[in-house]
Write a protein that binds this DNA or RNA. Structure first.
Length: 390
DNA sequence: GCGGATCAC
DNA sequence: TATGGTGATCCGC
């Protein structure tokens, strides 16, 4: 650190700053604020599904996963420090009463499909990131929506879904009873939802109203809550969806000044793509929030690769992708397994054969042929990975 | 082009 | 008892 500092001259910094300023100008000139991007994130998804379907779990600290690894936890468990990606046996030490429910991926997939049906009505080209998360571009939807009569923006509690109304009502009332309380301080669902006699809710034509409506429909259909972020680009929308979680939403209006103000205090770690390692490297330079990031761009352009500091510059300016790309073809398929130390050669061969067999099956399932085979055997036997590349 | 590192979920 | 699995990208060789 000290050495590097000494090696960078003031002249270099000055030149770097000039380059940063020039690129900043170009980026600023082409800033796009015309799209309305939404990031939707289901609240504690797997845990919420399990709680919905098992009332016993409602008031207990619970997590979904195994003694080896947890996928997610509910609010009660989080109070004990139980988090996603934590081994279950550690979580048990933090919270001895923790109930661990094994994952039911088929069920989560089914619920996800229900939610995605709703997404597609607001953006037929929405981009799913996982079972519980997606980006939408609702610009066109809002354009249409402006001309919609109120009836097209009105939703009834027992009538929100098309299909058999009688069955629907029964299902709804049952779900009301089962509706999970995820978080103690969670703002209750919309007033008309909790009111026993509430009949209909009319949503407005703004972006916020459209997203409120979408979240309302998700809750009506699945008894699960979602959080959302609304912003002029994907990077901002993602950060926003985290802002009022759970069961909330946040919008950054399409104005440069507001975007910059929002970025100022934002910790760099909150931005998707900035992980633990990058956070540490930046912290070592005294950079924690995005304001500091923008102040140090000249230095960063000297210390990091082109793509890295360009990315930092985009972040510091509150820029991000403004178009939701169609999910492209997969580029690789892999199988890996974690195992303990293993000195017996036969055992090692056996494991390799198993991996090959599993991967071959996966490949066959998609009828794919791959050009190259990568075999990764990392010491000390923590990761064993087979990858086929196209 | 390859393998390691990083990241998201 | 026990700390995951999959896919993508970037970077330095």
């Amino acid at each position: 650190m000290m050495e590097q500092k000494a090696r960078i001259t003031k002249e270099q910094l000055k030149q770097a700053q000039a380059e940063v300023d020039k690129l900043t100008c170009e980026l600023e000139r082409s800033r796009e604020l015309g799209r309305v991007i939404v990031h939707v994130d289901m609240d504690a998804f797997y845990a919420a599904v399990e709680m919905r379907d098992c009332p016993e779990l409602k008031d207990k600290p619970m997590a979904v996963g195994s003694m080896s690894m947890l996928s997610t936890s509910n609010y009660h468990a989080r109070r004990f420090g139980v988090r996603a990606a934590m081994p279950g046996f550690i979580a048990k030490k933090l919270c001895p009463n923790l109930v661990i429910v094994p994952t039911n991926f088929d069920k989560y997939r089914a619920v996800s499909a229900q939610v995605r049906e709703i997404f597609s009505e607001y953006d037929p080209h929405f981009m799913p990131m996982s079972l519980d998360e997606a980006y939408l571009d609702i610009t066109e939807h809002l354009e249409q929506r402006k001309h919609w009569p109120e009836t097209m923006r009105t939703y009834h509690i027992c009538d929100a879904k098309t299909g058999n109304d009688a069955d629907r009502s029964a299902a709804e009332s049952e779900r009301d009873e089962l509706s999970p309380v995820l978080f103690e301080d969670s703002p209750s669902s919309s007033p008309s939802l909790s009111g026993a006699d509430g009949k209909a809710e009319v949503f407005g034509t703004s972006a916020e109203e459209a997203v409120r409506e979408m979240r309302f429909r998700i809750e009506q259909k699945t008894s699960l809550t979602a959080s959302a972020g609304i912003a002029p680009n994907m990077m901002l929308a993602k950060v926003c969806s985290d802002k009022n979680k759970p069961n909330g939403q946040y919008r950054i209006p399409p104005e440069r000044q507001v975007v910059m103000e929002f970025m100022k205090d934002l910790p760099v770690r909150k931005v998707s793509g900035v992980g633990k390692v990058t956070e540490k490297m930046l912290a070592a330079l005294g950079i924690v929030n995005c304001d500091q990031l923008s102040q140090q761009m000249a230095l960063l352009s000297l210390l990091f690769s082109g793509t890295s500091w360009h990315n930092f510059l985009h972040i510091s300016l509150g820029l991000g992708s403004t178009c939701i790309e169609r999910d492209s073809e997969r580029k690789s398929m892999s199988t890996e397994r974690t195992f303990g130390e293993m000195s017996d050669a036969e055992e090692q061969y056996s494991l390799c054969r198993d991996l090959c067999h599993d991967l071959a099956q996966d490949l066959q399932r998609e009828g794919l042929k791959y050009k190259s085979l990568l075999i990764n055997l990392m010491h000390p036997c923590q990761i064993n990975k087979l990858t086929f590349k196209k």
